[in-house]
Design a protein around this nucleic acid. Structure first.
Length: 493
RNA sequence: GGCGCCGUCGCCAAGUGGUAAGGCAGAGGACUGCAAAUCCUCCACCGCCGGUUCGAUUCCGGCCGGCGCCUCCA
């Protein structure tokens, strides 16, 4: 067991990047706020999922023992409202979207969390936690509900920078002592799911669930708490208040918030704005690796623009990487790398040097607040060098040892980020299938035309072959002739 | 009104107190029967105005512009 490599991480709490220091050496307890399951997962949610998935892969790759918890909010106002609209049982509706989420997670290539707690199966923990808060004087029952008394927590606002007295006060709910107090337990209303509690039938408030579920799995102090930037206030602020008042310990040592997807208008993508793209739809037209690259190409804390070009661009990029790896894999030879590099010249030397230097640069980028954008930049430099060498005819038979470090680099990327994790052929095949499907083309038709054209080319009937190629091009098929016959790709852009 | 973030090439984007990675798109070239792919070359002085400094895109202040949160939201 080697010592995990140290890294630095930004925390919303301190608003700066600082060395990561876990509660227990070598271990990372990570809690990420998951979905409220009343609708499909959209590409904005998926950013959070992929970012933290990648983060976990990278931590584990570096030897950290990560316990990754991501919850489902399956008891909630929005779920109840939607279920009522549809005349469906709320629990059944929630389960349906949990199943759908699991499909999307599989489609996105997400690692399963170590624990995936749900509100509906955590009621006992929640009730117990609320009881503790009442006992300690931080919460008070009122008319069948229980409220958190924010005035009893002097540090309230430390995460989001809000001050209680500066908050816009909404409608002061009957029974609240202060407009900023928030519900831990909501008294049951007719027709709503409800559980027994010492304060009467009811259901948990939104924030208490995460405090209860994270405590159950990871204890009083989390190493890292993650979620979308839009959760900082009030959700995460309230979690801090609940957990720290109940357990008397720092709730989370590092707060990690991913930036939001923004539309061309600059506005964020959000269900309430009605401008969302479902993961299911995105994955129907683009391989999961496309999404992963799209998310990782910029820093996780920055806003990420979404638009019609986002996925096509990302597909072009990730295809470039896979194809470069394919080139690297195609070399043969088993001589000494340095000897071959010397013989083949500077392009070979460049691949060797870049390959050997890659891991250090890659690690350095990720070690500084998980800078995947910079790390990918290094990867593209390496890919270009590989392709350059691939143009050398003499390289084919001898360059294997020279690209060995590059192949190691691709493996490193796959292990640490999940990018390039598919076999090249499988990826290219998936691209073909999905792009054909997106364009409404039948594979057999295309292959027949390609075969037809190969024949024309064999007979050197260039004009007719070119005509056919133009037809294919119009359909969106790009033909790539080679000595061994034509290959084809579906045009991305 | 309060809190916070951001403004780098047509688009996406990293980054540094000493004159700016990478990708997409575009132009020219090599290669090719012609193409495509690939490679090569070209393509920014970092919102504006001050200040600190020998020197700022990078630090400070102001301004303009955009966004997020303060109500459900990854």
């Amino acid at each position: 067991m080697t010592t995990p490599r140290p890294f630095r991480l930004y925390s919303t709490l301190t608003r700066d990047v600082r060395p990561f220091e876990p509660v227990v050496p070598g271990q990372v307890g990570l809690y990420v706020c998951g979905m409220t399951v009343y609708d499909r997962c959209h590409v904005g949610h998926a950013r959070a999922m992929v970012v933290f998935d990648t983060f976990v892969r990278w931590l584990r790759h570096n030897g950290w023992a990560v316990t990754f918890v991501r919850n489902f909010t399956d008891v909630d106002d929005k779920i109840i409202h939607r279920a009522n609209e549809r005349g469906e049982d709320p629990a059944a509706l929630a389960q349906r979207y949990i199943d759908a989420f699991h499909d999307d997670a599989t489609g996105l290539g997400l690692l399963p969390p170590d624990h995936e707690p749900r509100v509906s199966t955590s009621i006992d923990d929640i009730v117990r936690l609320i009881g503790t808060l009442i006992d300690k004087g931080h919460a008070y029952p009122s008319e069948g509900s229980v409220w958190f008394d924010v005035r009893t927590f002097p540090e309230y606002g430390k995460l989001s920078g809000q001050k209680i007295d500066e908050l816009r006060s909404g409608d002061p709910d009957a029974g609240k002592r202060d407009a900023a107090d928030f519900a831990l337990w909501k008294a049951a209303k007719p027709g709503e799911p409800a559980w027994d509690s010492p304060w009467g039938k009811g259901r948990p408030g939104w924030h208490i669930e995460c405090s209860a579920m994270s405590h159950a799995q990871l204890g009083a102090t989390l190493d890292i708490h993650g979620g979308g930037l839009d959760l900082v206030f009030p959700h995460h602020e309230n979690e801090v208040a609940q957990s720290e008042c109940a357990h008397g310990a720092t709730y989370a040592r590092y707060w990690t918030h991913n930036g939001l997807l923004t539309m061309a208008s600059g506005q964020k993508m959000g269900k309430s704005l009605g401008n969302v793209i479902n993961v299911e739809d995105a994955l129907a037209a683009f391989p999961a690796q496309t999404l992963r690259l799209y998310y990782l190409q910029n820093h996780y804390r920055s806003p990420l623009p979404w638009g019609p070009e986002a996925l096509p661009d990302a597909l072009a990029m990730v295809s470039r990487l896979y194809e470069a790896r394919e080139v690297a894999e195609s070399f043969e030879g088993d001589e000494s790398a340095d000897v071959v590099a010397k013989d083949l010249g500077e392009d070979a030397q460049a691949v060797l040097d870049l390959g050997r230097a890659f891991a250090a640069k890659f690690d350095q980028a990720l070690d500084e607040d998980f800078n995947t954008a910079q790390a990918l930049g290094f990867l593209f430099e390496l890919a270009r060098a590989v392709n350059r060498l691939g143009n050398h005819k003499k390289a084919k038979k001898r360059a294997r040892p020279v690209v060995k470090p590059a192949l190691d680099a691709f493996r490193l990327v796959a292990s640490a980020t999940g990018l390039l994790s598919q076999p090249t052929s499988a990826f290219l095949e998936e691209v073909r299938e999905k792009r054909l499907s997106a364009l409404g083309l039948a594979r057999a038709d295309i292959e027949q035309l390609i075969a037809q054209r190969d024949e024309l080319r064999r007979d050197k009937k260039w004009a007719e072959a070119d005509q056919l190629r133009a037809e294919l091009d119009q359909k969106g098929i790009v033909v790539m002739d080679s000595p061994t016959g034509a290959e084809w790709r579906v045009r991305i852009q």
